[in-house]
Design a protein around this nucleic acid. Structure first.
Length: 474
RNA sequence: GCUCCCUUCGUCUAGCGGUUAGGACGUCGCCCUCUCACGGCGAAAACAGGAGUUCGAUUCUCCUAGGGAGCGCCA
């Protein structure tokens, strides 16, 4: 019988939840869901200087927004320091670790010497066998792992394959600092073990740590969890993802009007594929997800593809949930509250009525909101420069005629107004476009909009006739 | 410098010894059309380079080049 799958997401709360972390969390979540297991959340806050409460809140908020849930209580690593110390002492008692009294200056010298000689193991292991009686006064010792001096450390990684290190290249890592606090390396091993983690899925910047952690597992006689190191996400230019490209918090993606479903879909396809399938519902992702299908090379972040996917999910969303998402978004964007103040039963109904035409034209909620501007705009409309060019004396005169032609239309609908405008165009030997564009400019202040007869219908006769009169020239 | 990882269209990728090297985004063209979109059709576009192994390499091995990660008493 195979043990139940337990994965974990273990961010260090030194900033927002960035896109790479979001993908790591997603992969852990998918794997757990697929195998009916659990995903645990552990906050790696042992660095007291850099860990902050707002960062923790931002990470939890980001995960929630993305729809990624975790099981059980959130573990705060710092609170487990006593347990970490206990394990270090246990290793010490078993002769698998030793006290090291090397000073910072000595360590620096060793590092320089190692580099000069082209060696990768920095610490020279001098306190391995030295008598602690020789300890210099005033130096608080660290506890180091007595790592194997020869042989190999091997990780059978589910993504990277078999990765081998020669032990002579790995030095004795510090388990417990001079101040008695555990290092990351020790804390991770102890926590993963104690939490019952069966599968470690994390960024491949941790691949080398896996070797050192394996040595700790071996010294403790614990079984190493399944390891999967997923490639990092790079910026569009192939370099490390920086703030300049896409290393934004997921909250920034929310503010840019991306849908969680779109971001999930984009992220899951970055480095992972399932044949030719591009669109995945959450359930499809869970069913199809497979560690062995994750590629080993880094992927570049491509906003154009994210936008395309986002457009897809917007088009496919139902009108009411789009309106809900839009109102939600207003709380996260500049001037959002001013717009929210204009929402009432009437404008909400208009938004809903216009939604079919709106959602086809937007790649982000921000765009959708912008395109919906004509609904909440105040008279007289601000006319965009491009639209202003349409308003020649001749078209202003035409607008006056259109106003008159529409005045008698009853009942008012997109069908009846369209019939009236087509009739008007025919009688005056005009193409429909020659009528539609001036109408569009007068009613929306822009040269592009949803279908103009839908705009007419949504705005209603009073508002339309007033806006037309505003721009007409008699 | 050292250790480890990576390398198919511009981008994300399919391919798991024999294919006209497939799909998606983006780009371009045509159609649809009241604008913009959506949608439809079509086009251009890739196996980093070099040695092997093999009847046959995009696929296996090695080397080179390029890219990345790590090299702390940070996580």
């Amino acid at each position: 019988m195979t043990p139940p799958v337990v994965t974990r997401f273990a961010p260090s709360p030194t900033g927002f939840l960035h896109i790479g972390g979001a993908r790591t969390a997603l992969f852990n979540w998918l794997y757990a869901k697929k195998h009916g297991g659990k995903m645990l959340l552990r906050i790696e806050d042992t660095d007291r200087e850099r860990s902050t409460e707002p960062a923790i809140a931002a990470i939890l908020d980001g995960l929630s927004w993305l729809g990624i849930t975790w099981d059980g209580d959130t573990v705060h690593q710092f609170s487990r320091a006593a347990r970490h110390r206990e394990v270090a002492e246990q290793l010490l008692a078993a002769g698998k670790a030793y006290r090291c009294y090397a000073t910072a200056e000595e360590l620096t010298r060793m590092r320089e010497a190692a580099r000069a000689e082209g060696r990768s193991n920095l610490y020279d292991g001098s306190w391995r066998e030295r008598d602690t009686a020789e300890a210099p006064p005033g130096v608080k010792p660290t506890i180091r792992l007595k790592a194997p001096l020869s042989g190999e450390t091997v990780i059978e990684d589910q993504v990277q394959g078999r990765v081998v290190w020669q032990n002579e290249n790995l030095d004795d890592l510090v388990l417990l600092r001079g101040d008695g606090n555990p290092t990351y390396m020790l804390a991770v091993v102890v926590d993963d073990h104690d939490m019952g983690v069966t599968h470690v899925i994390r960024g491949d910047d941790h691949l080398i740590n896996a070797a050192r952690q394996k040595q700790i597992y071996d010294a403790l006689g614990w079984e190493l969890p399944s390891m999967s190191h997923i490639p990092l996400i790079h910026g569009p230019d192939g370099s490390k993802l920086s703030k300049r490209h896409g290393a934004l918090g997921v909250d920034a993606y929310r503010a840019m009007g991306y849908l969680p479903a779109a971001l999930r879909n984009y992220l899951v396809r970055l480095g992972w594929s399932h044949g030719d399938q591009e669109i995945f519902s959450t359930q499809e992702m869970i069913d199809a997800f497979d560690l062995s299908a994750i590629g080993r090379s880094a992927a570049r972040f491509d906003f154009a593809k994210l936008e395309n996917l986002n457009g897809h999910y917007i088009r496919q969303a139902d009108d009411q949930s789009l309106l809900t998402m839009l109102e939600e978004l207003l709380r996260h964007i500049p001037h959002g509250l001013e717009i929210a103040a204009k929402l009432n039963d009437t404008t909400r109904a208009q938004l809903l009525q216009a939604m079919p035409g709106l959602k086809e034209r937007a790649k982000t909620l921000l765009e959708l909101l912008d395109n919906a501007g004509f609904i909440i705009a105040d008279r007289p409309l601000t006319i965009e420069p491009k639209a202003l060019a349409v308003l020649t004396p001749a078209t202003r005169q035409l607008i006056g005629q259109l106003h008159d032609a529409l005045e008698s239309v009853t009942p008012w609908s997109s069908e009846t107004t369209e019939a009236a405008m087509r009739a008007f165009a025919e009688q005056n030997g005009l193409k429909l476009g020659a009528v539609a564009q001036p109408l569009r400019v007068a009613l929306t202040g822009r040269t592009t909009s949803p279908g103009i007869f839908d705009v007419l219908a949504v705005l209603g006769p009073q508002e339309c006739l007033s806006r037309l009169a505003d721009q007409a020239q008699r």
